[in-house]
Design a protein around this nucleic acid. Structure first.
Lengths: 237, 237
DNA sequence: ATTGCGGTTTCTGTATACACAAGAGCGATC
DNA sequence: GATCGCTCTTGTGTATACAGAAACCGCAAT
C-alpha cells in the first residue's frame, strides 16, 4: 500500500495531519483497526504522536472517505462492511469501471497496454509461484488500473474510481485468494486489454461487465463460506 | 454554545464548522465567490464569525468536494470551471445516472413516480408562467432526483451522484435558461419516468443517456454563445 | 533598468487551554 | 431492593497562542 519510497527525495517533513491520515487509513485498510473499533481523539492523537487538531483533520478526511463514521454521542468508529454494502459498492464500481474502460478504449495510447498484455499473458505461470507470484499479480492489476486512469483523462471519473478502490481494498482482505479464480480473472483482464488495444469500446465494456460480475460472485461466495465457518480460499480479482 | 430550542429541530445546535461550511459552499455555488477567488483563513474566519479552527475544517471539506483547491504557498482558491471539465463531469454523470435510473426502474415503488408523472405532464404549462414557473420546474427536478435516490437504495451510488450534482449547480449558473430547451427536457424526463413506472430498465437507461447527451450539448452551446459575447438563453435541464 | 538579496510581514500548521455536553458511578430515598 | 438524581469524569467543539515558512517590498549592485 504505502511503500516508503526513500528512493524519491520526497522525504520532506510531512504535515502532521497528513501523517495521521495515512497511518489511520493504512491501519483501517490493513485490518489493524477492525470495523466497529472506537476512535477517541485524545487516545489516537497520543498514540500517533500528534496533537488533537491535526488528528481531527485526519478523521474528518476518513469520514468523507467513508472509512469512519461519527457515532451518536461519543467518538467515532471504523465503518463496518456488510454483505449488502459489498453488492452496493459493486453496483457503483460497475458503472464507473465500465465507463472508464469504454473511454480508455476510445482514447488510449496502445503502447502501455501492449506491455501489460505481455505481462498478463504470462500471468498463469506467475500464479504457479505461490505467494510471491500472487503478490506480483496484484501489482500487475495496479499497473493496469493506473494505465486505464491515464488513458481515461478524466479527473472526476478517476477520483470516483479511487474512492471505490479504497473500499475494495478492505473487501479483498475478507475474501482469501483462490488460485482458480485468479487464473480466470487473469483471462478476463486479458480480454479487456485486448479490447482496449483493438479500440473496441463496446467489447471492452462488456468484458468489464462480465469480469465484475464474476468478481462479485467470487467475493460473495468467499464471505458465505467464511460465515459458515470453513476456511475460504476465494479471491476477488 | 446556546441550545436554541426552536420549534423546528433543524436549527438547534449547529456547529460553527458546519455553519462555515454551509455558508462558504452556498456562496461558491451561488457565484458570490467566483472561481479563482482567494480564501484566506483569517479573513474568512472573521467575516463568517468563527475562529480559524472550524473554518479550516470547513475548507478541508470544500477541498474534498472539489470546490476549492489549495494553492502553492499561500491560501486557497475557488476551483474554476473549464469547458473541458464540464464534458468530463458529464462523462461521470452519465455513468452514474444511467446506473441509478436502471436500478430505480428495477426496484422502484411506482407510487411516487406516478405523482411525479402527473407533475411533469403539466410542466409545459408551468413553463409558460415565467420565472416563478421555471423555479417550480427546478423544484420538480429536485423531487425527481430525490425519488430516484430513494428507489436506488444504494448509499455509495447516491453519494457519488450528490457530489456530481454539487458541480452541476455551478455549471447551471453559467448556462442561462432557455424555454425551448426546458420544454424538451421536460419531455425527456417524462419518458424516463414512464420507463421507471413500466419497470423497463433498458428503456429508462437509454432515455437517460439521450437526455444527458442533449443536456450537455445545450450547456456547451450556451457557454459558446456566452464566450462569443451575445447574451445566452440556454439551460441544462 | 534589471536582478539579486535580505528584512519584514503575513499566513499557515500545530499545540494547548477552556467551555459545554453527555455518561457513568454512587448515593439517597421510596 | 430498586429507582431516581446528582456529581464527577471524560470527551468533543472552539478559541487562541506560538513557531516556522513563504511571499512581498525595498535597496543596492551590476
Amino acid at each position: 500500500m504505502y511503500t516508503e519510497t526513500a528512493m524519491l527525495g520526497l522525504d520532506v517533513p510531512l504535515r502532521a495531519s497528513e501523517r495521521a491520515y495515512r497511518q489511520l487509513r493504512g491501519e483501517i485498510l490493513g485490518g489493524l483497526l477492525a470495523p466497529g473499533a472506537a476512535l477517541l481523539e485524545v487516545e489516537q492523537a497520543e498514540r500517533i504522536g500528534v496533537s488533537r487538531t491535526p488528528l481531527r483533520e485526519a478523521v474528518a478526511r476518513l469520514i468523507t472517505d467513508g472509512l469512519v463514521v461519527g457515532r451518536r454521542g461519543r467518538g467515532f468508529e471504523v465503518t463496518d462492511i456488510s454483505v449488502d454494502s459489498i453488492s452496493e459498492l459493486y453496483e457503483l464500481r460497475q458503472a464507473l469501471e465500465v465507463q472508464a474502460i469504454r473511454l480508455a478504449a476510445t482514447r488510449r495510447d496502445p503502447a502501455p497496454f501492449m506491455k501489460l498484455r505481455d505481462a498478463f499473458v504470462s500471468a498463469p505461470e506467475l500464479l504457479e509461484q505461490g505467494d510471491i507470484g500472487v503478490h506480483r499479480y496484484y501489482v500487475l492489476i495496479d499497473e493496469l488500473e493506473d494505465a486505464v486512469d491515464v488513458a481515461v483523462e478524466n479527473p472526476f471519473l478517476v477520483g470516483a474510481l479511487r474512492a471505490v478502490r479504497t473500499h475494495l481494498a478492505r473487501i479483498r482482505r475478507l475474501a482469501r485468494r483462490n488460485p482458480l479464480r485468479l487464473r480466470a480473472a487473469a483471462a478476463e483482464h486479458l480480454l479487456i486489454i485486448d479490447a482496449i488495444i483493438a479500440g473496441d469500446p463496446s467489447l471492452a465494456a462488456h468484458a468489464t461487465h462480465i469480469h465484475l460480475h464474476q468478481s462479485l460472485l467470487s467475493v460473495l461466495a468467499a464471505i458465505e463460506e467464511d460465515s459458515v465457518g470453513s476456511r475460504s480460499t476465494t479471491a476477488a480479482d
